[in-house]
Amino acid sequence: MKKMITGVVMAAAFLTACNGNKATHDASGTFEVDEVIVSSELTGKLLSFDITEGDSIPKGKVIGTIDAENLSLQKDQVQASIEALKEKTADLTPQVKLLQDQLTVQQSQLDNLLREKKRIENLLKQDAATGKQLDDMNAQIDVVQKQMTVTQQQINVQRSNVGTQNRSILSEGKPLEKRVAQLEDQLKRAAVANPVGGTVITKYAEAGEMTSVGKALYKIADLSTMTLRAYITGSQLSQVKLNQPVKVLIDNGANAYREYPGVITWIADKAEFTPKTIQTKEERANLVYAVKIKVKNDGFIKIGMYGEVKL
């Protein structure tokens, strides 16, 4: 509402000056800038906050720290829980080794029996052994082979059971690892990093104060380029276009002006208002349109300063 009233006053003054044939410019307005309010991303005490209004700060610079000791302790606790899970897992090696040793003994028995079978077969060819001896030997070999099969199955079952048990325990670690990642992300937010390069306009907090998520800490803006929000009449609308170069004037003493090159970057697509101070029928028909003009700032242009435009 305040911007609209200001626009009405400026546009009325501009049109009145035109009516008196004393205008030295085609449009006028005030300078503004895109401001960024930097807020806290964490709740806690501001351990440090080393900025003052007017400071020029580059993008990414850490200018403050929020106490995050509680988060650090939470992270340590979760990491300890992850380590404790490893202690709960079963060690497969002793149980399986016992069965594997048993299997090794059985394999040795089988090898001996196979050699004895070979010897009996040779004796049988020479009629020095009986068929019953060979049958008995085959029966013993069959028993040992079955025992080996059972032992191998026991090894497989043991590995499966322990593996399932361990996977169940270790699966609890995945959510804990995600929790650690969340806490690490929050700990990074304890450092207040400047999001955009610019000049500190307003400081809202001091070191030692408590802050919370979303609480404003300071306001910053890039003052190297200013935006002049000016107003033109409907009859002038056909004379302007985007990226059109124009001349921007600001006061430089009582009767002098400082001149800057500017570029039109935005044109309103509809009239904002019709000034009520215009009395003649012709001037009441004039609609006022807002335009934005980017101007490089050499330090003399200030936010809210009055500016004039020559098309």
Rank of each mutant, 00 (worst) to 15 (best):
204 Y>C: 00
131 G>E: 13
151 T>G: 08
159 R>Q: 15
12 A>S: 15
221 A>F: 03
202 T>P: 00
50 D>E: 15
150 V>P: 07
56 S>K: 12
9 V>R: 07
153 Q>W: 10
298 D>M: 07
27 A>L: 03
213 V>I: 15
145 Q>A: 14
176 L>K: 07
205 A>W: 00
291 V>I: 15
225 T>Y: 06
252 N>M: 09
124 L>G: 03
1 M>N: 11
135 D>R: 10
59 K>S: 14
244 Q>N: 07
32 E>S: 12
174 K>Y: 14
298 D>Y: 08
228 L>W: 00
224 S>T: 14
292 K>M: 06
257 Y>W: 11
249 L>R: 02
274 T>D: 04
141 I>R: 04
212 S>W: 03
94 P>N: 08
85 L>W: 01
143 V>E: 13
63 I>M: 07
307 G>S: 08
115 R>I: 12
149 T>Y: 10
259 E>T: 15
234 G>L: 03
137 M>D: 06
12 A>Y: 00
225 T>D: 08
286 N>Q: 15
160 S>V: 07
111 D>P: 01
122 N>E: 15
29 G>I: 02
170 L>S: 03
89 T>Q: 09
240 V>G: 01
306 Y>H: 14
210 M>G: 06
12 A>E: 11
260 Y>Q: 02
104 T>C: 02
123 L>T: 05
165 Q>E: 10
201 I>N: 01
243 N>W: 10
107 Q>G: 09
124 L>D: 05
238 S>M: 11
213 V>E: 08
75 K>Y: 05
237 L>Q: 00
170 L>R: 00
23 A>L: 10
137 M>S: 10
145 Q>E: 13
97 K>L: 12
211 T>V: 14
139 A>C: 07
52 T>H: 11
262 G>S: 07
24 T>L: 11
